[in-house]
Design a protein around this nucleic acid. Structure first.
Lengths: 409, 409
DNA sequence: CCACTTCTTTCAAGGCGTGAACTAAGTACA
DNA sequence: TGTACTTAGTTCACGCCTTGAAAGAAGTGG
């Protein structure tokens, strides 16, 4: 039960409040006229709705702009300090917690180094809870002013309806993360795949912004993707993640840490890069720095180190094939490459990568594709996670009590 | 402009009409009470809405059923003869036109053998138009009673906003099919990818019915797929097609007719099957029957012909890998295999196919997957195509004039 | 024949968006 | 300085919508 309940005349008002709020959130401060045009409602209704929102304190007047020989537009905006949201990035080597206001400005940050694959889920939950407490204390924001906590995790997230996480690569098998968190905090929760959330962040605020159909690829230790179809810059278009890193690009090829063979991740993931480099150099690596540092340093010397250049070329070849596949399947107008490793590859070999993708894609869908490097940096996943409670809040028309449960935006 | 315009109180009524109609269409005749429960509206409103629809003639009373010691439910249904729809399947070896009533019963059928790859698009348009005219004449249905024509084609369909078809494999390069058809008929049109429409048909009426997340694979001359996510049996859940057949499963592998290398279609498509068989037999084939007949006969003798069995085993291996990829990406609860070739493979080697898929998929998403053979037969694509105008009609709340333009359901 | 159950209809009440008229607040120009 | 014009926002009567409660309809069981 529970389709979109716009069947009642009450829900209609909520819908129009939501439309106004989404407009202000995504396009920034603006005139009532713009809101009316975007939502397709009459000026009278906009006045009425915006009046409501201002009375509630969610929206505030913020100046005015002249408008070519007529009454100037008075500009309204969402009060950035009306409420706050938390975003958590559960990464393979650290847990990052960030606090944002409604303008998505960072109000607090706390990073806990960790090694996900060696930790019990309960320990991770404690780290998250501790991080949340630390950030709130440090920023002086009251719990009551927090709309909710978004959490990005690796692996597959199943909503049934509480989020259960399957991340074979870090040894998480059906971890009921949302239930565990519920026991330790009263804040509304929203859990989803990290790659999907990175995509959401890039789509709302980064390199994927404004494109109708976009594919965002996250390349780091693992490999993930998220897809947005036929939703301009507009509200919650539709995304779809999945374990794309574990699709076969070479049937019966290299063994992958997931147990199967020929997965894309087994060719382009950070682990694969390091391992391949060791093979080319004829021996295991020296120091015991963490993987991210090793791979970053390795890629920094492609000019002088032939083995490094070879490894990078192979990554480009396979990643290009993978991107070509995505283009064939989704025919996006833009592909954005993010993640700490992806951004490095993009910086070094964007042209070659586009060429490799072109060889593997059909002419037609590939013709209009732009291949871009992600805009957002290391905290893109946390930002994306924070968009989850924000999205619920806006879609509910700005009612804080409506922000419960765990269905995705 | 033009988001979902439920902003007005008028649109609200249309929405509720649409809800009632979808309920009756997908779940069959039923009581007003069921409609109310499904749509989440009060009994009074249901009476009101259904009364409207009956006055219009779209809905009619059809008996009643007892209900445990109370007033019996009176049953209402959509009048199957209120209007009709046409579905066209533009296949690689024939153009099939079918006429359906609103209960999706076939009222007329016309098949034109053809060879798509050797025909100019304008000739195909003529065949479609001729087929439509023939079916209407033969069944005695007036043009005014036809809601529209759905057309399924191979390749990528771009809506911009009129449908343009890119089917590299049959030599269609940016064919403005919808515009061409518009010049030759006044009927409302809807063009989309054939594999997507086959999926739609299986999802509404066939083996994919009732599943929340389903992947439907079409294997014939080419290879396509369609995906339905998080929409139970309910309305227009969301599908997504694309040239899945031309994703690389072996980077730099077999050359494919699309020009790239290692495409899945180059291993499991009908052409690949025939070619591989010829290689194993050490020479080209004898007769010059069409591909479908040759491959069908070839697969009929896997018991006695080792070369045939080998070919089939290879198809299973690669198709299994492809299906494993789909499972990893979409984590469906069900995978349905259709298309003339797909149904044969499913009938012969379902168990082996599931095994091959399992080897290539992650444990978690694969655990609960059912792999099924498609229910619907040779006219599944035409049926799926016919759902397009039906879907528009229902979503508009049963207003015939609203059935124009070409955006997908 | 009466009590009870279940489904459907009727209707007053309250809420909502529209469209038109109106007010507000500027610019252009004489 | 003032008049005409332009654009933005507000007010309000009107019609439409859904709800919720109450009434009606059509059965069953005793």
């Amino acid at each position: 039960m529970g389709s979109r309940q716009t069947s009642t005349v009450h829900g209609l008002r909520r819908e129009n409040r939501a439309r106004a709020l989404w407009d202000l959130y995504l396009h920034g401060p603006g005139s009532r006229q713009r809101i009316g045009a975007g939502a397709g409602v009459s000026p009278g209704t906009v006045s009425n709705v915006v009046g409501d929102l201002m009375e509630q304190g969610l929206v505030q007047e913020s100046g005015s702009v002249p408008s070519g020989g007529g009454r100037p537009s008075s500009i309204v905006q969402i009060d950035p300090g009306y409420a706050f949201v938390l975003g958590v990035d559960v990464g393979e080597s650290s847990v990052l917690v960030e606090l944002f206001d409604l303008a998505m400005q960072v109000r607090g940050r706390h990073r806990i180094p960790t090694e996900l694959a060696r930790l019990a889920p309960a320990e991770v939950v404690e780290q998250i809870v501790a991080g949340v407490a630390a950030v709130l204390a440090q920023s002086g924001v009251a719990t009551d002013d927090v709309l909710g906590v978004g959490v990005g995790v690796p692996g597959l997230v199943e909503h049934s309806p509480l989020a259960v996480v399957h991340a074979q690569t870090v040894g998480w098998d059906a971890v009921p993360l949302e239930a565990l968190l519920h026991e330790r905090t009263a804040l509304p929760l929203a859990v989803d795949n990290g790659a999907k959330l990175l995509g959401q962040a890039e789509h709302w605020f980064g390199a994927a912004r404004g494109a109708a159909d976009v594919v965002v690829v996250l390349l780091g230790h693992g490999l993930g993707t998220s897809i947005f179809t036929r939703g301009s810059g507009a509200r919650a278009p539709m995304s779809s993640p999945g374990e794309w890193g574990h699709t076969a690009v070479v049937v019966d090829g290299q063994p992958c840490r997931c147990g199967a063979r020929g997965c894309l991740e087994a060719y382009v993931g950070a682990g694969a890069v390091a391992a391949r480099y060791d093979v080319l150099r004829g021996g295991p690596a020296e120091g015991s720095e963490d993987l991210e540092t090793r791979v970053t340093e390795l890629l920094a010397r492609t000019d002088s180190d032939p083995a490094s250049a070879t490894v990078l070329a192979e990554v480009v070849r396979y990643l290009g094939a993978g991107i070509g596949n995505l283009v064939n399947v989704y025919s996006p107008s833009r592909v954005v490459l993010g993640g700490w490793l992806g951004r490095q590859v993009a910086a070094l070999r964007m042209t070659e990568l586009a060429g490799a993708a072109a060889r593997n894609a059909l002419r037609t869908p590939f013709a209009d594709v732009e291949l871009l490097r992600a805009d957002l940096g290391a905290d893109a996943v946390a930002l994306g996670a924070a968009t989850l409670p924000v999205g619920r809040f806006l879609s509910s028309g700005g009612q804080r009590d409506a922000v419960l449960g765990s269905r995705p935006v």
